[in-house]
Design a protein around this nucleic acid. Structure first.
Lengths: 275, 275
DNA sequence: ACGCCGATTTACTCAGACAAATAAAGCTTT
DNA sequence: AAAGCTTTATTTGTCTGAGTAAATCGGCGT
């Protein structure tokens, strides 16, 4: 009676994949989404939801320049029918991109890619899309430069404002890191927890929002480092030095240690991208 | 034959407002959106669009704590019917909020407000919503603290990297500002243009994205200053000092001048909020 | 030449249906 | 009785097709 997804019910053999693979085939997103259990699914917001998958696809395409700034996308009817999805799903994905400042749609004109300076590049998801493929060197450089501005300052504030509970939490994370190293899942989780607590200790919501976005993005780079077999120096001692300065309430030391930690991470990352 | 918007066609007198006011009545947004032509319409993205208006309304409510973090919104059917809008429009507005990390929806569970640490507080629109009403003092303080970290560093980079064209553009903006002062529309436009060019001169996309968000938000605070009749010192000479340092390529001076400029703005803003 | 005004294209909104996912309750088996 | 499986109920997700509103473009008249 209704002809939605008509194939699967009766058609023998040939294609037993039910739903997720159907999305994959439709959107050609199979290669990127269902990765291994690494830090890839940090944004479980759209788990196999069509609108989220399409938004991600379009977002990546825009970031890679497949759709250039100022360009106008095909209209809703054509786009959705050529992707073989409903207009609602398509519209919702466009809404997501618009919320991130990447497109802008008006009647009669259509939906156009906005100028690059209006994109919310520091949005966690946009950052994730950026690292979906190898990001431009310029951008990685810019990100580390920004990190070098904000994180040492954050460490300084944290040293001045941290509570005793936060010190204990960080001490625990450091211990786990020392025991497990960053090769293990537990170790990496401890690393993230350490940074999270440090950020909270700054007692500055705005700074925290920024840092957590960047942290997440930078953690993507560790994938590249691992993938390219770059031998990175052990960052745990540096973390420990930062921790000790924060615990001691020594702002200047905390700033300095954090700065050198980031410089090191940047150098390692650069080696991963240039070889 | 069809009963959409049945009232207006025949019913005499009583209600001749056609569409925009209908939205207003429905969403009670009439008071906030169609403001005077100030910097209010900095985000012309959703111009009277229903999904945008509702997203803004819900966003503001979440930021103000009307819906608390962890709370679950009424389901789509109830919400949309009680607002007297379609499910599609409601869903698109939820999609916008989800894109900004403020809600998260799953089948069976519903749509819940996420924890505050996951909100993209530096998203330009979210910042706009925050300043829709009087923002919490803590947040304003945090914002200026962040500004004090990033903007001086940005000024330093700009001094080192600016092109001659950018110097000329900034010189022009400064001249307009001196002539028009910040009381006029043209003067304020020149101010924004000056900051925009300065940001571009840093040659760092990530920093630019951050700064332009914050700049826009901070420009909201000027509304409060004007509204509360706070007598602010003339900021034009400070801008001029920053400009001269940048033009001369003196990074350290640029940093220092920008720092004092921000401190002054912060003090003025504080006086606006505390009286 | 300039402004008004209609036609066309586009996104926007609506309505109702069905599908998928998942938490919770119920059932079975050990 | 507890653990695991199955059913059920609820909610978001997706689809379809229609009509509405807005903005651009072209023609018209002044």
């Amino acid at each position: 009676m209704d002809m939605r997804k008509p194939a699967p019910p009766e058609s023998a053999g040939e294609d037993e994949s039910s739903d997720i693979k159907t999305l994959s085939r439709r959107l050609k997103i199979g290669a990127a989404r269902p990765r291994d259990g690494g830090p890839g699914q940090n944004h479980p917001m759209y788990q196999g939801r069509l609108h989220g998958a399409l938004a991600r696809q379009l977002g990546v395409d825009i970031l890679r320049g497949v759709y250039k700034q100022g360009e106008i996308l095909p209209n809703e009817i054509d786009s959705s029918s050529s992707l073989d999805i409903s207009r609602s799903a398509y519209r919702e994905s466009i809404r997501i991109l618009a919320a991130k400042g990447m497109v802008e749609s008006r009647p009669k004109t259509g939906t156009r890619v906005t100028e690059r300076t209006r994109w919310n590049l520091l949005d966690p998801e946009v950052l994730g899309w950026m690292f979906e493929t190898e990001p431009p060197h310029d951008f990685v450089k810019a990100l580390f430069e920004l990190r070098l501005i904000t994180e040492p300052a954050a460490a300084e504030l944290a040293a001045q404002r941290r509570t005793d509970e936060q010190v204990e939490s960080m001490r625990h994370s450091i211990e786990v890191m020392k025991r497990e190293t960053l090769q293990t899942e537990a170790g990496r989780r401890a690393d993230l927890e350490f940074h999270h607590t440090l950020i909270q200790a700054t007692d500055n919501e705005a700074l925290a929002s920024l840092s957590s976005s960047i942290e997440a993005a930078v953690s993507w780079t560790t994938r590249y480092k691992a993938r390219h077999n770059v031998l990175t120096r052990d960052p745990v001692p540096d973390h420990e030095r930062v921790f000790e300065a924060v615990a001691a309430g020594d702002g200047r030391a905390a700033r300095w240690c954090m700065e050198s930690l980031i410089r090191m991470a940047h150098e390692d990352t650069q080696r991963a991208f240039t070889n």
